[in-house]
């Protein structure tokens, strides 16, 4: 059962949302400063929903570029 492993670059990009939204919780779990009237922790998570999408878009580009290269090498 052979599958193509994800590239290291894509994995590192995928790690960023995990660090930002999960592992670093004690750094951003506070009310102040409120931004646009929203507590900081809630604002942080909303911002990272958008930023995670950007990270994964970059990871997608990395994977597509690699697939193209592999295809060319054959």
């Amino acid at each position: 059962m052979r599958v193509k492993k994800p590239s290291v670059g894509a994995l590192l990009l995928g790690l960023i949302p995990f660090i930002a939204m999960c592992l670093s919780v004690s750094l951003w779990d506070r009310i102040d400063p409120m931004i646009f009237g929203i507590p900081f922790n809630l604002f942080w998570l909303i911002a990272w929903i958008v930023l995670s999408t950007l990270c994964m878009w970059a990871a997608y580009r990395v994977e597509v570029a690699r697939d193209k290269k592999d295809f060319g090498a054959q």
């Binding site: 894509a10 995928g14 949302p17 995990f18 939204m21 999960c22 990272w48 929903i49 994964m56």
Partner: peptide, 13 residues
């Protein structure tokens, strides 16, 4: 909020 977003990150891989 965090888990739903990260679930899609996992799904990518």
């Amino acid at each position: 909020m965090a888990y739903m977003t990260l679930a899609y990150v996992v799904s990518f891989f």
